[in-house]
Design a protein around this nucleic acid. Structure first.
Length: 497
RNA sequence: UCCUCGGUAGCUCAGUGGCAGAGCAAUCGGCUGUUAACCGAUCGGUCGUUGGUUCAAAUCCAACCCGGGGAGCCA
């Protein structure tokens, strides 16, 4: 048995492949089987004259996603997907499928999500999962090579650390329990035992968010480092992202191509340093005239684009009546494309003025909204790291600077509008300040006694951050929505399959 | 919770007050180089649900249900 991704090693020899029919075309006495085996796609050609009657019968009976074994001669062939073609001598059918719901044509989001268990077989989904796997492996490699110890934080937690509205409540032997939305506090305890640690696990948030950036269940990587300050924390985060991007570019070029990812958007990250700015500097940029001008220009260019594609649509509609079938298909596809782009432009018309208003009127001390982040990000081609946030809007565990006004936190925003992929900070390491902070926030002191012990017994400066895996995958793959970055997404209104 | 768009054949959609439509899928037939193959035929409907307006409702009105996108919140 041979795998499709190893065909190059078997040119001009006979191999047996096991897999599924991805697509199927036939003409009189030729059958073309596009076959997938999990490692890739290849085209198998069955010629009526070259095979027995039984084999021809079997080949003719195939349908999309039928499972089979194929034996044939491997030939290099430009015409075939993947560059190799199998000249078939034998076909063993394992199962002829019933009507497969996902056709090679277009489908809607709801239908595809209802069939997620099958959708995973499709090319783009396959490619995205391969990239996800590469990113996971790269993250482990990055930390393991730096002597970090991977440790696991609990998923059941007994207390609501960051406000219970975003927690899923469950039952733990007749006691209320919550699904963890972060492992950070436990990470700090583990870092005091091992120095450098990272967690890699699922987290749960009950936020009623229905956006392209949110999942109810997502995977987070949370390194925590003893004797690290904010600066070292940022250096580590930057090195890690660069390592991930470089690894994906090196090893998953083929998958990025299937996904239609514009690689030129990723290559700058390998060389260029990330942008670092304080919150105050970010606010200055948001409220600047340059930002206002940029948004005005953006609006103007949308208007021009709208005019141009509307005109194109009129022209090809006229052509439609007299066009040949293949051209009609092409025109229909283009009209659909234009339609959805026009919807997007329509949305931009509503959004851009709001973005401008939000940016121009931004007041120091507020947290950035989604649009403010977008406006900030669109000005750079590398991630930006925003530090020194107003203490009031950041979590109680973050250390403050000498003035006491700023929290030593950092948010890393990915380019191209992919948003916050990392949130991190230097942690408060002083027992008394931490007690004050807990009291200020009105948190239950009892619950945090063990956490305060970390400050009682050998406290040291330390820092860490959390990376959202799915947002990172979405960004590197250029996907519109995080639901395509995890095999079985869990989100509001989606618990099946 | 709020704003916004949508729900018509298995799928993607057109139809906006007067006989329920197309492409794909499925079924049958044709074709020796197909690439979302192509050509011919057949099959396929509780127009999201309930109520209202009307001679007549997929189409207009109301409420509800479900989904997409966004706000808030966040990774």
């Amino acid at each position: 048995m041979t795998y499709i991704n190893k065909l190059a090693e078997h040119v001009d020899t006979t191999v047996t492949l096991k897999g599924w029919v991805y697509n199927y075309r036939s003409s009189g006495s030729l059958v073309f089987i596009e076959m997938r085996d999990g490692t890739g796609l290849t085209q198998c050609v069955v010629a009526k004259d070259d095979v027995s009657e039984d084999v021809w019968e079997a080949a003719s009976s195939l349908k999309q996603e039928s499972s089979l074994e194929i034996t044939g001669l491997v030939k290099a062939d430009e015409r075939s997907v993947g560059g190799h073609e199998i000249h078939v001598s034998d076909v063993q059918v394992i199962q002829i499928t019933e009507e497969y719901p996902i056709t090679p044509k277009e489908h809607g989001v709801e239908f595809l999500m209802n069939n997620r268990h099958l959708w995973l077989r499709s090319q783009r989904q396959w490619a995205a999962m391969r990239v996800r796997n590469e990113i996971i492996f790269a993250i482990h490699t990055f930390f393991q090579e730096r002597n970090f110890v991977q440790m696991d934080s609990p998923i059941f937690t007994g207390n609501a650390a960051e406000g219970s509205t975003t927690l899923f409540e469950t039952e733990f032997f007749e006691e209320p329990a919550y699904l963890a939305q972060t492992g950070q506090l436990y990470g700090e305890a583990m870092a005091m035992a091992h120095g450098l640690i990272y967690t890699f696990g699922p987290t749960f948030r009950a936020e009623k968010s229905k956006t392209r950036r949110h999942l109810s269940e997502f995977w987070m990587i949370e390194p925590e480092m003893a004797f690290y300050d904010l600066e070292m924390n940022m250096d580590l985060a930057e090195d890690m992202i660069r390592f991930i991007v470089k690894t994906v570019l090196d090893k998953r070029g083929a998958e990025l191509e299937i996904l239609g990812r514009d690689i030129s958007k990723l290559t700058p990250l390998v060389e260029k340093p990330f942008i670092r700015m304080t919150y105050t500097e970010a606010v200055d940029i948001l409220t600047s005239d340059a930002t206002a001008t940029m948004l005005d220009e953006m609006l103007a260019s949308r208007k021009e684009e709208e005019k141009a594609i509307k005109q194109e649509r009129e022209e090809i509609k006229k052509e439609h009546g007299s066009a040949k079938k293949w051209r009609k298909n092409q025109i229909d596809a283009r009209i659909k494309e234009i339609g959805s782009r026009l919807d997007q432009i329509e949305e931009d018309y509503r959004n851009i003025p709001q973005w401008k208003q939000s940016a121009q009127n931004f007041e120091w001390g507020n947290d950035f909204g989604g649009s403010d982040e977008t406006v900030l990000m669109m000005q750079y081609d590398v991630p930006i790291m925003v530090t020194n946030w107003p203490a009031e809007i950041k979590a109680f565990y973050m250390k403050r600077d000498e003035s006491g006004k700023h929290a030593l936190g950092v948010d890393v925003l990915a380019p191209e509008g992919y948003g916050e992929i990392i949130g991190g900070s230097q942690r408060e390491d002083d027992l008394e300040l931490m007690k004050e902070r807990i009291a200020e926030e009105g948190l239950d002191k009892e619950v945090f006694e063990w956490y305060l012990d970390l400050r009682r017994f050998g406290t040291v400066p330390h820092a860490g951050f959390g990376l959202g895996l799915e947002r990172t995958v979405a960004w590197l793959c250029g996907l519109q929505h995080v639901r395509e970055t995890i095999p079985f997404p869990r989100m509001m209104g989606r618990l099946k399959p």
